[in-house]
Amino acid sequence: MSTEDFRTLYERLRRAARSGPDGGRRGALRHLTPARVAAAAAEVRLGRTVSLAAPIETRPGPDNPEPAKHRMTGPAPGEAGADGLHFALDRFAMNVHGDADSHLDALNHVLYDGELHDGVPAGDATAPEVRSLSVDLVREGIVGRGVLLDVPRVRGVPWLEPGDHVTVEDLTAAEAAEGVRVGPGDLLLVRVGHRRRRGELGAWEAARARAGLHPRAMAFLAEREVSVLGGDGNNDTAPSAVADVAFPVHVLAVHAMGVHLMDYLQFEEVAGACARAGRWSFLCVVAPLRLPGATGSPVNPIAVL
């Protein structure tokens, strides 16, 4: 995709997002109305819950050079077998925006041309306007209809190879095969098979090579008024389809459209459950940590089938 074509697409999607009734500050969450949240509850048929997150990893690997750090800080020596009350304790730290752990990107995560989403200047991270776009924007959680589009299943392969792109045609073909249609306010989940490939072949340097969405596929999300995009990879393909923009899907989704992204989720279990049930939509509950000012959060989305 040429730089000129990317810029044209960026400006078109940005204008559409800023034409919302709230000026665009809540981004695509404006499509997730209380009525749509209530309607999503009707998606529950089996009463089964499925995690969409991968276990947090604490060992370094090719795609995780800065793994999360978790250590037990209690009980103190001698307390484990002692009489009376004592506590087991933990300490945890992580690089939220890595290439292995499941996480949510807030609207203050992507800087482009000196701005954040909705034209907010990116200079001062503590400024009220910047903090208004942080993960605290979704402190009440994100609850709505989740729709899983399993692209490898439709193509008849276990996964997409690194560097491959999900196109608009892939998304519409998955809709047709699954008998579902993505609509306003939906949490769109696109499986590329990243987690399955990693599990079967081992980790690789995903920063250099991974499957993801083609930038033009973001027009599909804008047309359908999707509120959230989640993937089992980074959502962006590597190498990038745009020579001078390393993460074009992040720029278009987060920066231009105000779509919260969830990266490196785990779809293998829910894909199997959906295939067995013959239904590819469900209630989806996302509860990020309350971290005012933060650019993202580790996340464990739950599908309720």
Rank of each mutant, 00 (worst) to 15 (best):
E4Q: 13
E4K: 14
D5I: 15
D5E: 11
F6H: 00
T8H: 07
T8Y: 05
T8G: 05
Y10I: 03
L13E: 00
L13R: 03
L13T: 01
L13N: 02
L13F: 04
R14G: 05
R14H: 06
R15N: 13
R15I: 06
A16C: 06
R18Y: 08
R18T: 05
R18L: 09
R18F: 04
R18V: 02
R18N: 07
G20Q: 10
G20P: 13
P21M: 11
P21K: 03
D22A: 09
G23L: 05
G24A: 07
G24N: 10
R25E: 03
R26L: 15
R26F: 08
R26S: 15
G27M: 01
A28H: 04
L29G: 03
R30T: 04
H31V: 00
H31T: 01
T33I: 07
T33A: 08
V37S: 03
V37Q: 07
A38Q: 09
A38D: 13
A39C: 08
A40E: 02
A41F: 15
A42W: 10
A42H: 07
E43C: 08
E43D: 14
R45G: 15
L46V: 04
S51N: 03
L52T: 10
A53P: 01
I56M: 11
I56D: 10
I56G: 12
I56A: 12
E57G: 04
R59A: 14
P60L: 08
P60E: 11
P60M: 12
P60R: 11
G61V: 00
D63Q: 07
E66T: 15
P67L: 12
A68W: 00
K69V: 15
K69A: 14
H70R: 07
H70W: 12
R71N: 03
T73P: 01
P75C: 12
G78L: 11
A80S: 06
A80H: 02
A80C: 05
A80T: 14
G81M: 06
G81Q: 00
A82V: 12
A82H: 02
A82K: 01
D83P: 11
D83R: 14
D83K: 12
D83C: 14
D83A: 15
L85F: 12
L85N: 15
F87S: 13
A88S: 01
A88R: 01
L89I: 15
D90E: 07
F92E: 02
A93E: 11
A93K: 10
A93N: 09
A93V: 13
M94K: 09
M94F: 04
M94G: 11
M94Q: 09
M94Y: 05
N95D: 11
V96E: 05
H97W: 12
D99N: 12
A100N: 09
S102C: 14
L104A: 10
D105W: 06
H109C: 13
L111W: 09
D113K: 10
D113A: 08
G114F: 03
G114W: 00
E115P: 07
L116C: 10
L116V: 02
L116N: 13
H117N: 02
D118P: 04
D118R: 02
G119S: 03
G119T: 03
P121Y: 03
A122C: 05
G123V: 00
G123R: 08
A125D: 08
A125N: 03
T126W: 15
T126D: 14
A127D: 01
P128T: 00
P128K: 10
E129C: 10
V130Y: 05
V130R: 11
